[in-house]
């Protein structure tokens, strides 16, 4: 489950139209400051996180917010090549999709042969439900722990940090570019199961679950879209709760940055946040391993959404 790294942008700045109504640079992630103790729930505003880049204001001089020594801190370009799909990306997505389709096809063929339909369908439904939970746990983990140097997950951890700073770039990322890492992981994990197993129920579960996880980045990208620009069927699925809604996911990008981690259907978000499941896990990890999650700390400029980029050019 990965978002491509957002850190390889060339050094240049981009002026955004600020639509964030919060004091983005001063907000604290701990819900209790010296003056307040409550309001853990962020104010809801469906499209608040959408920062639309202004095409006519691209500038080439470094912005004051750019740290020249760290390319991760530079604002991405609209037509950045890192947002485009390559043939390698497309090949991996094609392979991942084929793997998932074979799994689903095997499930259907086996179900037809054995006349057992209910179990595979139920397993598929469970796969869909659990994929949302899986996406949340993974997203929570890489949002809160490790850094760019962490083995295996380092690039994804850094990418998610970049995504928090420039959420809108996901809407400009091309389809295969956005999905290829998950497609590759799906291929490696699911293909052996597809080859070795003929059970329709297991294949139903694996096919739907892996398919939802592979496409979770697309659902995530749609959650960052605006209603007017998204295809109507996508909006309908979001509003029906089949796919993670824009409202729900926008809360993830606002203070206190410790909720709504699930990005498939978002069905688990309310339960996980209401019962503070991730907070409990963070506490257990803290007392057992001594590790503090990022969500407990004051945000720095590498984490908070970059909404204001003073530009010398107008």
């Amino acid at each position: 489950m990965a978002i491509l790294p957002h850190h390889k942008y060339p050094l240049r700045s981009l002026e955004h139209v600020p639509t964030c109504h919060h004091l983005c640079w001063s907000r604290a992630r701990l819900t209790c400051s010296a003056t307040t103790t409550t309001s853990t729930k962020p104010r809801s505003s469906p499209d608040q996180l959408i920062i639309e880049p202004r095409l006519d204001r691209l500038v080439t001089t470094p912005s004051p917010l750019v740290t020249p020594t760290r390319s991760r801190n530079t604002s991405p370009l609209l037509n950045d090549p890192n947002l485009l799909s390559t043939w390698s990306h497309r090949a991996w997505v094609a392979t991942g999709c084929t793997t998932v389709l074979i799994s689903l096809a095997k499930s259907m063929v086996a179900a037809a042969n054995s006349h057992i339909w209910l179990e595979p369908m139920l397993a598929g439904y469970i796969g869909y439900i659990l994929s949302d939970l899986g996406s949340g746990v993974y997203h929570w983990g890489i949002d809160n722990y490790g850094d760019a140097s962490t083995p295996i997950f380092g690039s994804q951890i850094e990418a998610f940090q970049g995504h928090h700073k420039w959420p809108w770039t996901i809407t400009r990322r091309q389809f295969a570019n956005n999905l290829h890492a998950l497609a590759r992981a799906t291929t490696f994990i699911v293909l052996p199961i597809v080859m070795l197993c003929d059970d329709p129920t297991l294949q139903g579960f694996v096919g739907v679950c892996s398919g939802c996880i592979m496409f979770s980045q697309q659902f995530h990208a749609w959650a960052h879209g605006t209603k007017s620009k998204l295809p109507p069927p996508v909006v309908a699925l979001q509003e029906a709760g089949v796919l993670v809604s824009r409202t729900q996911h926008s809360a993830h990008h606002r203070q206190p940055y410790n909720n709504n981690y699930c990005i498939v259907s978002g069905i688990w978000n309310e339960f996980l946040d209401k019962y503070k499941v991730f907070e409990a896990l963070e506490m257990v990890l803290f007392f057992k391993l001594g590790v503090r999650p990022r969500s407990w700390s004051e945000p720095n400029s590498n984490w908070t959404e970059e909404t204001e980029t003073p530009s010398p050019v107008h």
């Binding site: 722990y145 490790g146 850094d147 083995p151 380092g154 391993l289 001594g290 590790v291």
Partner: peptide, 20 residues
């Protein structure tokens, strides 16, 4: 005193070990 074994979880534990 709980110090994380650096060999097992190297970069998951940046500088956040603490006394338990």
């Amino acid at each position: 005193t709980l110090t994380l074994p650096k060999h097992s979880l190297p970069s998951l534990l940046p500088s956040q070990t603490r006394r338990n």
